[in-house]
């Protein structure tokens, strides 16, 4: 797999895995209280994707319109296929997903590029992801 494509393959994979887990929990543990599909859900899925990509050796040159397009595609098609969202809610979620994925990819790429410019612990990509997650806790509860 080409390094440039790693991110675009990983995002739908991680999103699909999250959606599938939710389907399973909904079916076999209906009393479980699951996180709502909001900005934090998008942030978590995106950061897992970015950290995985970094460990798989991706993170090469980005094509930003493509990053936005794949964000939009993943956060629209997959939740819709599961029956979680539709109509106006799906459109809002997809647009938010596209924008958030692009912005987070830019932020995370800048962070990790700085890390790879010097000697860093192998845990650095994961820690950078965790740091961004903590920083974005402020968006919790934000209505999209």
């Amino acid at each position: 797999m080409k390094k440039e494509l790693t991110l675009y393959f990983l995002l739908p994979l991680v999103t699909a895995a999250a959606c599938f887990m939710e389907l399973l929990l909904d079916a076999f543990a209906p009393a479980a209280i699951l996180p709502h599909r909001d900005l934090m859900w998008i942030v978590v899925v995106t950061l897992i994707t970015l950290v995985l990509e970094r460990y798989l050796g991706g993170g090469a040159k980005r094509c930003w319109p493509l990053v936005a397009a794949y964000g939009l595609l993943s956060f629209s098609l997959l939740p819709w296929a599961c029956g979680f969202l539709w109509g106006w809610a799906l459109l809002r979620f997809a647009l938010t997903g596209g924008v958030a994925f692009t912005v987070l990819t830019a932020l995370y790429t800048i962070l990790t590029d700085r890390l790879s410019a010097t000697k860093a612990t192998p845990l650095a990509p994961a820690l950078a992801g965790f740091l961004l997650f903590l920083a974005l806790q402020g968006t919790m509860g934000m209505v999209i």
């Binding site: 995002l11 599938f20 098609l77 296929a81 599961c82």
Partner: peptide
Amino acid sequence: PAAATLLLAAALYASA
């Protein structure tokens, strides 16, 4: 990757 996303969506739909 877009084709892979479509395949994943089809698999999720079937699972749902």
